[in-house]
Nucleic acid binder design. Structure first.
Lengths: 71, 71
DNA sequence: TTTTCATGTTTGGTTTATATAACATAATGT
DNA sequence: ACATTATGTTATATAAACCAAACATGAAAA
């Protein structure tokens, strides 16, 4: 299963789901689905999200059972 | 557009497309399409590929016009 | 030379990502 | 009280990812 920090980082920058959606060229519903973990976005979108949230893909998304989970 | 180093790293480790496909649970055709840049894999698959190729997603995939291109 | 193996490529099918639109709710501002 | 805004959520539709199977080719190996 896929985990992510999109909601956390979006909040940190004070973006709404719509704001972020516009920046990365998807609808707010797509952002909502990603935050809920309901699907695994394309890497193209993941790269855009990482850029918008000033981080990198590996910090933003990880597979359950990998590094970030070991804490 | 999306660029990647899958073929380069796969070769470095001496994996065939089939080998890599098995490791990340997709068919060899899917690996071939990704290497050709014909589509943008899911981030779940991208994370598995990065792991199999002992790198991270941001080293393996990047958007044209981003950092890696500036050289 | 014949077989095997890695890769290229195409076609048809299923699944999933993503869009668009609608309706609901809670919070905030007027 | 009313309007607006952010978010949750659901339905239907389309595009794209991915599978499975087939056939082709060139290289290496027997």
């Amino acid at each position: 299963m896929l985990n992510n920090r999109v909601r956390e980082l979006r909040a940190r920058y004070g973006f709404t789901q719509s704001d972020l959606g516009k920046q990365v060229e998807v609808t707010r519903q797509t952002i909502a689905f990603i935050e809920k973990g309901e699907f695994s976005p394309s890497i193209t979108l993941a790269l855009k999200l990482a850029k918008a949230l000033q981080t990198n893909v590996d910090e933003l998304f990880w597979l359950e059972g990998d590094e970030k989970d070991e804490k």
